[in-house]
Design a protein around this nucleic acid. Structure first.
Lengths: 231, 231
DNA sequence: GATATGGTTCGATTAGGATCGAACCATGAA
DNA sequence: TTCATGGTTCGATCCTAATCGAACCATATC
């Protein structure tokens, strides 16, 4: 019967509402203190401390101690991937039974998925990149094509920045709100960072939503369009 | 605080060992009766019935009633994807603390992941296909290239077989034992079916392992090599 | 030193849910 | 009809784990 790894242990950890809220809050790769997380989860700090100890023990989160503050963050991209897969499931199933509403519309339009862009704009970007030939299949999974590097350079991303990184440059990630793919991996991360640095958008405080300025969204879309014409 | 879908509900469902065992058993897309599943999970049929009712209510499994037999199967690929993501997590974390051993070696070499091939041979196949240019990025996610269709035809897969299917032809799926990608989607499914039809391998009874014959594994590898030379 | 604040540990309480025995229902066979 | 088998429902039991009050520890500030 017992085949492969034991899922139930880690699933049970995520199965508690308090812990699930904490993990969801950490999905944007930013670290939080234990106190902040207890507030996110809606429990006292004692309870939160207990939960965080379990998550730490299971290796789902890392802890950085700075002075009297304990900063927690997700242990890695694989944790975020599992959470995202569960969100995809939950969203599809919930939509069927009580049509949970668009939750937060801004969250569906653009949000941070671990360290890259998700939501409508994230899916749009992935579509344009693939149809325009910016990225293609290479030795392992996806990587950026020559044309892609040209386009990325337009917004300030250089290929040298990725030398020596073992992390795959591009990865697909299934979007829970769109149920289509968007771009993950270090490539996706680089684009998101650029979007912030260029002032096209900012992180919503206390939320995973990415808020584009009208100007920024226009520039972003025009940048993507540039490739569609050369299809 | 409450952002996006509620993960904890579905995670808690998977978090129970009995339910996790049932779901894991169903990962090969074959349906099982309630009785079989109760045996897989190691609980009485009353308990199993209660669990299955919950899984059914949450939309994680489907039920087909045939006579007095109730056949259960996974509700869809997204459920399998979430389970796979959790396996990836569990395997990585378990390996760190007690080096859970190779579990079942045959399982690591080749196994069924929902409806496609996973394990060492599955990852090998994906590597060869991408490095050889069989598949590439297209309008949406991955799809088969002209060269790819030629190669697939060699083993009896025709492009016409995929007309009108809305399901994406190719998808990446992270392998929990290899921690690399293998080929999922209808494309991955077609290859696996062919492998069985050609008699290269058979399903291990009562396990997700895929057992290749020496002859079959040789043919499979030689088929993949054909592309690598043309790299 | 004293005091405030962020976090963890301990202990007791409580509630949710997994479990199984027994009864019950439906299908199929005799 | 009677009997056997596969599944579900009901009810009672039992156990785990979430929760919080209170105490305790560590870091910072005065």
């Amino acid at each position: 019967m017992k085949e492969g790894p034991d899922i139930s242990r880690v699933a049970a950890l995520i199965g508690d509402p308090a812990r699930a809220n904490m993990l969801s809050a950490l999905m944007d790769t930013r670290a939080r203190t234990a106190g902040e997380l207890s507030a996110e989860a809606g429990v006292t700090k004692q309870t939160a401390s207990s939960h965080l100890a379990q998550l730490l023990d299971a290796g789902l989160v890392h802890r950085d101690v700075q002075g009297r503050h304990h900063y927690y963050r997700l242990a890695g991209p694989d944790v975020a991937a599992a959470l995202e897969a569960l969100m995809t499931l939950s969203d599809a199933r919930a939509g069927r039974r009580l049509r949970a509403g668009p939750s937060d519309p801004s969250l569906r339009k653009a949000r941070v998925c671990y360290d890259h862009l998700a939501g409508e704009l994230g899916v749009l970007m992935f579509d344009r990149m693939t149809s325009g030939g910016w990225i293609g299949a290479a030795d392992d999974a996806l990587s950026v094509s020559d044309l892609g590097w040209k386009r990325l350079k337009q917004i300030g991303i250089e290929s040298q920045d990725f030398e020596g990184t073992r992390r795959p440059q591009c990865r697909t990630c299934l979007d829970w709100s769109m149920r289509r793919y968007h771009l993950a991996g270090s490539g996706g991360n680089a684009v998101l960072e650029r979007i912030f640095q260029n002032g096209w958008a900012r992180r919503s405080k206390g939320s995973r939503a990415v808020v584009f300025t009208p100007e920024g969204e226009g520039r972003f879309r025009r940048w993507l369009e540039g490739s569609a014409r050369r299809r």
